[in-house]
Write a protein that binds this DNA or RNA. Structure first.
Lengths: 144, 144
DNA sequence: TAGCAATAGTTGTATTAGCAACTATAAGTA
DNA sequence: TACTTATAGTTGCTAATACAACTATTGCTA
């Protein structure tokens, strides 16, 4: 591998792109008074999809630390979006699920998210999507 | 664009990959007792390259908020890596530059970074690098 | 059964992130 | 010159991140 790749800041480009996306999403949420953060949205999306899961499972699904999950969920419980429910057969576990308000919020915010994804992918093809996915997967699995 | 791309979590994959890289870098720094964070390294790298720049310029170069720069630099000054120097002709400006210790730190950490970049790019080609760069650039510029 | 390891989750602490509000200085304009 | 606007940077606040240390519970094993 030529030194140019090695010295070229791909990490930086990933970081800058992600920050741009994150900022755009947050500003759009704010502009539409959705009162939700980008990461809270990610948890909302996963809770909507998986219905009833634990902190640990949510952490694995979102690539977030379980302590981070614990704190974001705390905020979402305070907002009335999420319900914590102790598991019957294992008193260490806590099941998480969306409240009716949480489900409403999901339906309310989702169209915005679809629009924003479209905006980001404008002028890119299916092949580009496959390529990006492939390359990121290789990088991900290269790292111990 | 088919709905699969729109609904597919490319944001999530970017986030997960970046987190994986960031974690790996930090753990490697820690394992070698470099006493530096990933973002402090990014500033160190830019200060080494540009010698003498302001907070604002550093913010633009790193895609970071100027408040974030201000606080990271604060920590680096405390560590003796960076020197703040008031500009002569404009008393609002502060020039930043590496101390001799900062330059040492750069030379000390850089080999680790090169190694880690190689690890991440293992099994990927020059074409992959160009593709990734191109796609991320398009996404970046798609976003208002 | 007693003891130890593993698992689920929380709390403490430090770092990064970004917005709003602030001070200080410089530049442009009536 | 006086007033307004723009620029450079800091501070307050809230959120997300990650490691370490902790509690509580479960499972394994001698």
């Amino acid at each position: 591998m030529p030194d140019t790749y090695v010295s070229n800041p791909s990490f930086f480009k990933l970081d800058a792109t992600l920050k741009k996306i994150r900022n755009y999403w947050q500003k759009t949420f704010d502009a539409h008074c959705k009162e939700i953060t980008v990461d809270q949205w990610l948890l909302l999306e996963n809770l909507h999809k998986h219905k009833k899961i634990t902190h640990n499972e949510l952490a694995r699904l979102t690539s977030k630390d379980i302590t981070t999950i614990s704190r974001i969920i705390e905020l979402m419980v305070k907002k009335g979006l999420v319900l914590r429910e102790a598991a019957q057969n294992d008193r260490r576990k806590v099941f998480l699920q969306l409240t009716p308000l949480g489900n409403e919020k999901y339906k309310d915010v989702r169209p915005l998210v679809l629009e924003m994804r479209k905006t980001g992918w404008k002028d890119l093809t299916e092949k580009d999507y496959v390529e990006l996915t492939r390359i990121l997967d290789v990088i991900y699995h290269n790292i111990p």
